[in-house]
Design a protein around this nucleic acid. Structure first.
Lengths: 184, 184
DNA sequence: TCCTTCTATGCAACTCGGTGCATAAACAAG
DNA sequence: CTTGTTTATGCACCGAGTTGCATAGAAGGA
């Protein structure tokens, strides 16, 4: 897949400018697909040229004008075609795992602080996810009868929460192992 | 980080040719860092030119010669320096999550087969991991007193197992959600 | 008034990684 | 004796993604 599809999904959920998309890729959909603003602008240009999105110039007060993008029928068709394609197995890049195996050839104890830092970062992210879940899906302000889009966003968020909880438990396992090795 | 460090770790665990490395990146270390053989050969050339690895021509019977690479002291130093650097938060690429959110704008039920396929693939991988754990770490042939390298490889493998179990549970959650939406 | 910050858009250069293709030694199968 | 398979190494090209830099409107603070 490409960034194009993530952008189509985000624009279908809510039309917006390149700048707004860039901010969404720092949160929300960005938890599952990252992109920089340069990449987003470049791809938006191409999508516009290919007729996947329409652009509307919007004047704003107290800030510069923006170019708001909406998905066209052609864009929806592209997304639908992609949704019906099977996904290739995702290529993994788990840097910390490589470091942990590499620590055998250095000082394993030196990794402890790094792993603790990761543990804190994932704990923060979990807190953030849980707050988002409470706000949008399980709290008093959440819709009583969520539509399909909300149900799907929620199940994706539950995946993020499960991932963070699993990661925290594993990092604790790593820490225990490193401490044991340090005692030898 | 770069592929260089994963190659250094793999060569420290066991010297080998580019071809052998490519096969390791299809299993073992490949579960946490992928690389194609073209990439490996190209990087090995550069690492050789930079003096990170030594090459020994090895004649073999019943097959072509190979170039066996070993890590030099300079290579170890490069790895050690990297081990002491903090890691950037890993950029996520979770294609299935994007597809699930995109399904709101198509037919959610059409995703069921795809998700089931992923469920089977992850179940296979879990089985594979568990077999490896039994063979190398917890079975009767496993070392009674594992060294630091083995302990660290084991904790990384436990991470893979935890990831697959979490993913399987989440994919079941996704399937339940898709079925509920299909009934509407 | 100048400086900084936030919003908003974009170019140029480069690196990384993947796809496709090519070569070659050794053996096995037909 | 040709074809196919496995081992083994490599080049050329292209697209995706990152880094660094540039521009500009509007607001607020020093």
């Amino acid at each position: 897949m490409a960034i194009e599809h993530a952008i189509l999904v985000s624009l279908l959920e809510q039309p917006g400018s390149g700048y707004e998309l860039a901010r969404r890729f720092d949160r929300s959909i960005g938890y599952f697909w990252t992109a920089t603003h340069q990449q987003i602008y470049r791809v938006l240009k191409r999508m516009e040229a290919d007729g996947w999105v329409d652009v509307r110039e919007v004047a704003q007060q107290a800030r510069p004008d923006k170019r708001e993008h909406s998905v066209t029928e052609a864009g929806r068709a592209v997304l639908a075609a992609w949704l019906h394609e099977p996904i290739q197995p995702d290529s993994v890049r788990h840097e910390l795992a490589v470091k942990i195996r590499g620590a055998a050839f250095d000082d394993p104890a030196a990794l402890i602080h790094e792993v603790e830092r990761h543990h804190r970062a994932h704990a923060d992210r979990l807190t953030h996810y849980l707050a988002g879940e409470l706000r949008d899906f399980t709290g008093p302000d959440a819709p009583a009868r969520p539509d399909a889009g909300q149900e799907l966003q929620h199940v994706v968020l539950r995946g993020g929460i499960a991932y963070e909880r699993m990661t925290l438990a594993w990092l604790q396992d790593v820490l225990d192992t490193l401490h044991q090795l340090a005692e030898r």
